[in-house]
Amino acid sequence: MKKIFSLGLLGLFLLAPVQAETQILKKIGKKIKNKSERRLDQKIDKTIDKGLDKVEEGMEGKEGDSIPKGDKDANQKPADTENTVKLWSKYDFVPGEVVIFEDDLQGERNGEFPSQWDLKKGNVEMAQLGDEMVINFPSTEWANIVPMMKEKGDYLPDVFTLEFDAYFSEFCTAYTLSFYDMVNQKNTTRLPNITIKPDDIFIQHSGSTEFKGDENYPYWKRIAVSFNVRALKIYAGEARVVNIPNFRHNPTGITIASRQCHEAQYAAIRNIRIATGDLELYDKMITDGKIVTNGIRFDSGKAILKPESMGVINEIVKLMQQYPEIRFSVEGHTDSDGDAQFNKNLSEQRANTVLNTLADQGIGRDRLVAKGFGEEVPVADNNSPEGKANNRRVEFVKM
């Protein structure tokens, strides 16, 4: 053992300079590796933290029934007006002139049944999605709801529009529209059901229409329906996906149905509006001297234009291009909620937003002025959601 140990010491002594240099290189390499790993860990930690923050934001539902927040929002305006104008440049949906049903879900309580609706079958409840309330269809069984209308019987005239935001959690999410009230009316004329899916709309007895849907779930999509005597149009987001010139049916009411694909996913709607009357822009301008619309909408308490507003704005642009002598005073109006002076300032800011959007599309600024009247000139009472919706309007007054 002594001999072996002596030889080992001799070898170690002879190799000491080489080993010392090698050890230094190893230490340098180890430090570089450790620093790289630390930097990588920090980046990973930041990424995980951001991911957890998003998860926590989206899991703000009621206890035991959380809903993930969608990545995209139908009502969330793109980063700037230019992008909004470009994306929705062909959008031609114009809402009806008079709102007869409006539900923005204000004042609803989490877990309760929505107060402005009636239930035909299934399970429906209010839920919190992100920072707002939605009507949730929490079961895998189909549920049907109908709006509680003030007018009984056939409450849909020959001309009406329907709008709502639909939440698509995955490819199998679906919503069904029936043009009669399943609680209060009978389907005596065999009105067809319309099923809306992420990239397909199926109309009973008429077949299916495919279109390019979004690829990244979950997301919100603005659904808009326009009916004019016989013609039926349906929009999904900025795209018109159905155009039937002769629908051959007489809608009498509205029923909305949906369900979860399975327990891990969700179906929800929000911002539901039914309006009547056909807003023929030129005719209104000639007969009334102005065009009144509730179809130009903004983020709550702000002058940020919502994308679906482009339907009316695009039609105003076409009108002014066709008749270059027309000049408009763009006038903003609000409901009576909040401070009167704030509302007046806000209405003027919103009128300027509309003016600037028209100018961005080539309308000369010398043909436009902007004014704000706030809550000073109501056209309806402010005691109902429908009255408030009709008071929140933009008027194009001929000069």
Rank of each mutant, 00 (worst) to 15 (best):
A267M: 09
I48N: 10
N294T: 15
K43F: 05
V229N: 12
T252Q: 12
G213R: 01
L7R: 13
P251G: 09
G295M: 06
N246M: 12
S258R: 04
K197Y: 01
R240E: 14
L15Q: 06
L177D: 01
E210T: 10
L7A: 10
N184G: 01
A166S: 15
E63W: 11
Y282C: 00
A389I: 08
A166W: 07
K318D: 09
N187Q: 08
K212G: 02
E215F: 11
V397F: 09
Q341F: 10
K69Y: 11
L156H: 03
A20Q: 07
E238T: 00
A340D: 07
N75G: 15
K31F: 09
G253T: 06
K30F: 09
T353S: 15
P218F: 06
N343I: 01
I145S: 01
E21N: 02
L119E: 05
E395N: 11
K212A: 09
Q76S: 14
R350I: 02
I223L: 13
I234G: 02
Q106G: 01
E315P: 00
V183N: 07
Q23C: 11
E57Q: 14
L25H: 05
S115Y: 08
G253R: 07
D337S: 09
I24H: 11
E315R: 03
S309D: 00
E315V: 00
P68A: 02
L191A: 07
E151C: 04
E348L: 13
L10M: 13
E238C: 01
L279D: 00
Q349Y: 03
D366C: 05
K186M: 10
K290S: 14
Q260E: 10
R39Q: 12
E386H: 06
E132S: 12
R248H: 12
N193V: 04
L15T: 11
S206Q: 13
N83V: 11
L9V: 15
L232N: 05
P147Y: 05
Q260H: 05
S6C: 08
A370P: 03
D118Y: 08
I194P: 02
